[in-house]
Amino acid sequence: MAIMMERVRFAYTDGVSVLEDFSLSLPESGVVCLFGPSGCGKSTLLRLLAGLEQPQSGRIRGLPPRTAAVFQENRLLPWLTALENVALPLEREYPRPQALSLAQEELANVGLADAADQRPGALSGGMQRRVAIARALAYPADLLLLDEPFSGLDEALWSGLARRIAVRNENRLTVLVTHIREEAETMNARILRLEGPPLRRREER
């Protein structure tokens, strides 16, 4: 089922209105890129889709039960190894041995098979980023939210990952927030140009 945002209004406690009467329809599958300048409200839109914020008026329909996300920050648990971090969300869906095996596979896919037993503190920024990406990809979600997922990665790495994500997620919806056009193009994304605040659409390709 497609996701429908209908006349959504959202403001943070400081009173600045980020979304004002905002409507948007997202398809069931494929990659949609929210493209716009920093501070226009893209990340807030993503937070609404993730269920981390609730609209103050209007409604969002069709949000799937399972969502995976790569946030702007890696948000890895420093006391767990890379493998345990990736396996953690999977433990709700599968028995632990299977969760660990799937996590190991996903770490190998992002080129971190040898770093499975390392804790995030022992990994470089780019490696931590890839662990966060592996965690999102391993989780059997119907909606994948990516908030500037490739920041800190070199071109060879991010373009490879971007292509892999696009192919693997053909049948589920991926929402990508970025202000780098090449990332959207590499993922063959439908681009929604946005501006604000308050957030509004400019034109659609």
């Binding site: 993730a50 269920g51 981390l52 039960p65 948000r75 648990l77 709700r92």
Partner: peptide
């Protein structure tokens, strides 16, 4: 709070 948000998005549940 960012880790708690991560736990919410991935539906870790209260106990986990």
């Amino acid at each position: 709070p960012l880790l708690l948000e991560m736990a919410r998005v991935y539906r870790l549940g209260w106990w986990k």
